[in-house]
Nucleic acid binder design. Sequence first.
DNA 1: TGCCCCCTGCAG
DNA 2: CTGCAGGGGGCA
Length: 283
Amino acid sequence: MPELPEVETIRLGLQKKIVGLKINNIKISNSKSFQEDPKLLQGKKVLDIWRKAKILGIELASDLTLLIHLKMSGQLIYQGKEKFIGGHPTKDMLDEMPNRSTRVIFEFDDGSKLYFNDQRKFGWIKLMDNGQLKMDKFLNKLGPEPLEKRFTWLVLKENLLKHKYQSVKIVLLDQSVVAGIGNIYACEGCFLGNIDPRTKVSDLSEHQIRRLHKGIIDSLKAAIAAGGSSKTHFINEDGVKGKFLDYAYVYDRQGKLCKKCKTTIKKIKLGGRGTYYCPECQR
DNA sequence: TGCCCCCTGCAG
DNA sequence: CTGCAGGGGGCA
């Protein structure tokens, strides 16, 4: 589910809440979600939280890191020792934790808890030491982080050209081309770049690649500012939904009017995935 | 490069 | 009931 902006939203929120806490106990109700021995984590202090692409890394004391991938339906929800302190449960908030899709619960030394919910059970939590992190195939395959300076339009061009004859929108979903983009921001980035998502990479002009580059960055930044996108599952660590889909130009807007030119937004299928675009703005 | 699969639940 | 969903791995 979550793409870069959603995972980043969770990272920013959790950072303030769990760094410095020690893990007391772990409860696992779906053995596929987390396959390590929970005892390995007992007493470990949380040192920092980072994000790479759609992966969250929770750095623990003594050379251990929890890697978390939320895949399509994962959630990480933090509950302080006093439930909902400060904010009151609104319709945005999930019901009581744990709920039917809770798969793993981390309990901290101050009594607070972190719930890993995952309706579809595609997500995973892994435990690695620094050596394993360095060797990890999945992490090592990831391409540039789109919000870092290294991600220039020339880098985008070079990486897109790994799949010359494919549609640009499909290529944007390849995590080795750009890290962290998923179906929403591939669609939104193409819109902001005025690129028809079906365009073959080899047919893109340099001018178009520059526009696409800017479009990707702009849509990701706007989404982070809005607290991410919530279509069905995404909520942040406080259980609150992101607002970005209110601002989206094309994603999930088929049949509605383009916010720029009033043309009807279309939905097609590309590489098996729903793809949304404005036939007028994107050529 | 293009399926099929891992799962569950919801809309049409 | 069928098809579809913010992901990505494995297989031919």
